[in-house]
Design a binder for these strands. Structure first.
Lengths: 227, 227
DNA sequence: TACATCAAATCATCCGATGACTTGATGTTT
DNA sequence: AAACATCAAGTCATCGGATGATTTGATGTA
């Protein structure tokens, strides 16, 4: 009796990933057709398809119907996501804070009055929200702020980290995080309106620092059981 | 004739992801069995399996043979990687710069003499490298620097972005990027040795700024054809 | 109560068949 | 010769069915 026996699909994924990482198939080049891979790896074509689909979702492969399956990149996004998931809550919150403050820096020179008005509107909505909606409304403001940076990679990362952090906090049933108040949010908007990049960065950090400090303290109290 | 018709698997992935994001199936709960999903979405079971496999690889689902498929998380890693891959080179380089400078900020207070010695050693090796090895040695220094931040999430992200940026530059055959010189690297190490967080951040930005500026100018010249 | 056994539910894997799409070759027309 | 239409081969997309492996809760027994 053995535990955790890897599935055939997982092994196929590993084999293909290894081949790609080793440069067995050049970036931009084509990997063998599905039937050939199935024969080579001694698995069925369906198993190969599932493995290829995983690697395509990870960005390593690109499947073109009628043409073949091509190596798109050697940068392994799946590995990154995996490691990200294993990171502790504190680390994830740290990164989220960093992303948001840098987003503010990029957004400051690009903000126009309409953007400022929109952010202010989101803050109004946040204040008017019932407790059940508050977190969602709050997130909407931060999302918009990050979007104003104009950097879509930054936006995608922020999305993931904020969701991940919110989820972990929710599932650990620790609703004790201090909610940043309205003046702190206003300080960010004010700095953005003045195109004051450093001021915006500082405002964001001032807002998030208490959260991080509270979390660090909580972790010291409970010693471990993180993630 | 329509272009880019999404495949059934992609649509199935979207449908499942939407259901998860909407909380249709609770985190920790079970989604319907494969045959039921196939019937519900009007696709074959094989199509459902490929979609589930993608979401499992992304960390949203967890498949347990004999038991069922469970919702593990609502934080979508695959979507993030996808959007990251679509981001332009400039955006990715921007993010990489931000990650490295913030890593320096976190590393500054934690650096001990041994770390400084190691970084210096890596710089020596970098100088001594033949042109073929130079990029690799250079990357080793930066990797070590980020690792000193003590934040594994940051480390994973930096890994991905640096690989992605290097890959894009290599494939566009544009070896014209100005290589930051030794004094600029030394400035970082010096700031770290003095536990000067702001100084380290500034040193990193001074080092990378020319790269970013050069890239921006190149993009303006060639108008488009980015990524 | 504790344990062994069993059956149902569910996922894992394979196989074969048919359709859709891409691509390069071929042949025709201008 | 160049441009265009047609065609066939290669490749992925999707389906349906069949069988095995694993988990899990029910059942029966000591």
């Amino acid at each position: 009796m053995q535990l955790n026996r890897a599935s055939l699909v997982d092994e196929t994924v590993s084999a293909l990933r290894a081949g790609i990482a080793a440069g067995r198939w050049a970036v931009g080049g084509r990997i063998p057709p599905e039937p050939a891979l199935a024969d080579l790896l001694k698995v069925s074509r369906g198993t190969v398809r599932e493995a290829v689909r995983v690697l395509a979702a990870a960005g390593l492969l690109e499947v073109r119907q009628g043409s073949g399956t091509y190596v798109r990149s050697q940068a392994d996004g799946t590995g990154m996501v995996q490691r990200l998931g294993l990171a502790s809550l504190k680390e994830r919150l740290e990164v989220r804070c960093m992303l948001e403050s840098e987003a503010a820096r990029l957004a400051a020179p690009r903000c126009n009055p309409a953007d400022i008005a929109e952010l202010t509107g989101l803050l109004e909505a946040r204040d008017a929200a019932r407790p059940a909606d508050f977190v969602e409304r709050d997130l909407a403001f931060h999302r918009r702020l990050v979007a104003l940076s104009g950097n879509s990679a930054l936006e995608a990362l922020y999305e993931w980290f904020s969701a991940s952090v919110a989820e972990t906090i929710a599932e650990t049933r620790k609703p004790w995080m201090p909610e940043p108040d309205r003046p702190q949010h206003d300080a960010i908007v004010t700095a953005l309106a003045a195109h004051d990049a450093d001021g915006a960065v500082a405002a964001v950090k001032i807002m998030i620092a208490p959260l991080l400090a509270r979390l660090t303290r909580a972790l010291e109290d409970s010693s471990e059981t993180e993630n």
